[in-house]
Structure formats: C-alpha cells, structure tokens
Amino acid sequence: MNPSVDALRATFGNAIGRALDSCGDTIVYVAREQLLAVMAWLRDTPEQAYDYLVDVTAVEYRDRERPLELVYNLRSLARRADLRVKVTLDPRGDLTVDSVVPLWRGADWLEREAFDMFGVTFRGHPDLRRILMWETYAEGYPLRKDFPLRGRFSRAEQVRQALAANPEAHYSMEELSIAEAYDELPADMKERLRRGERGTLPDFE
C-alpha cells in the first residue's frame, strides 16, 4: 500500500474514503467536494510531489447498483511512485466534479473526453466541449453502459441525419469556439454571422 494514503488520511480525515490494493496498484477514494484540494495537496506537498497526471478517465460498472467512478492516475516523476485517485458519482444523479485543469493543463483533453464519453461535467474547465464525437451528436454518451453498442438511433436514422447535416454548420462560431473573438472579426464576416449565415444545425427531436 502506498504510504501517501496514510498521509492523506492524516491531512484530510473523513474526505478520504476506503483505500485498496489491486494488482499492486494503490487506489484511494476521495470525496467529490474535496477533490481539487486533495489533488493540489498531492501535487504541491514536497513529500508527495505527484507532479505528473498520467490519465483521467471514468468507469461505469455493469452492476447498476455500483456508482460511476472517475479515475485519476497520478505519478511522481521524482519519486517514481504512482497513485490512483477515484471519485464516485451516482450515474443517475448529478455528474459534476471540479476540473483539475488549473493544476494540470494535460487534463484539458482528458476531461473533455470523459465528458464526451460519459457525460461527466467538469466545473471550471475552460473549454468543455465534445472532442471525439461531433458537436451536434445527439445520441448520448457512448461509453455509458445503457448506450447500445451500435448506437441509440437506427441505421436508417443515422444515415438520414448524416445526409441532412449541413457541412457548413461546422464553420459556425460555436464550432470554432471563437465566439468571444467576435469583436475582432472582419466586418463582412460579422455581417454574415449577423444574418445568421452559419448553416442550419440538424434538428434532433
């Protein structure tokens, strides 16, 4: 068992849940409200020095009673030590958790992927958009267990939507995420946007 777990318990008390060992890796559960504080402590305390975020992902179990887990793999490059921090969320409840992007910029795309695939919302993320699926994807979150392998919509519906989609819609300001740069745009482009020339988004329900 990684000694960081005892140090965490001594510092954060009840915010630290159970800790266990699986295949030689230490896993520690952390209360959702304290996640950011725990992560900052793990990164900035010299004895811990978990300066490297290996991965952020989520796990949903086939057992519907088990909560959805967010998994953070941390590593201390100097101490050559790994720690896996988990946060549990109710898959039918509020899937919101603090973003760790302020601590590790590398979490940016990883959290976007978890949002895209599991629907977890990261509070404080600078740019939380879908990343692998397209912006207008309407079938839900593919890696959730209630999502069928072949997608929620029928093949015919998927084809219909693909053909109905206006490819120009991909050049909308929302897609480019520079909506806040609107004031700096050339006048003619502003005029086109003002006229609503951004393609029509496909109508999903």
Binding site: S22, C23, D25, I27, V54, D55, T57, V59, Y61, R62, D63, V71, N73, D82, R84
Partner: peptide
C-alpha cells in the same frame, strides 16, 4: 480487480487500464 500498465511506446506512454468484474 483492475490493472494499469504503461509501456514506453514510440509515441510516448501507452497505458492500458483494464477493469474486470
């Protein structure tokens, strides 16, 4: 249980994280 193994791939650290029930 679950296991994470990272290996030094040409592109960087390739991790495989498996969770089993």
């Amino acid at each position: 249980g679950e296991a994470y193994v990272g290996i030094e791939n040409p592109k960087g650290e390739l991790g495989n994280y498996l969770v089993s029930d």
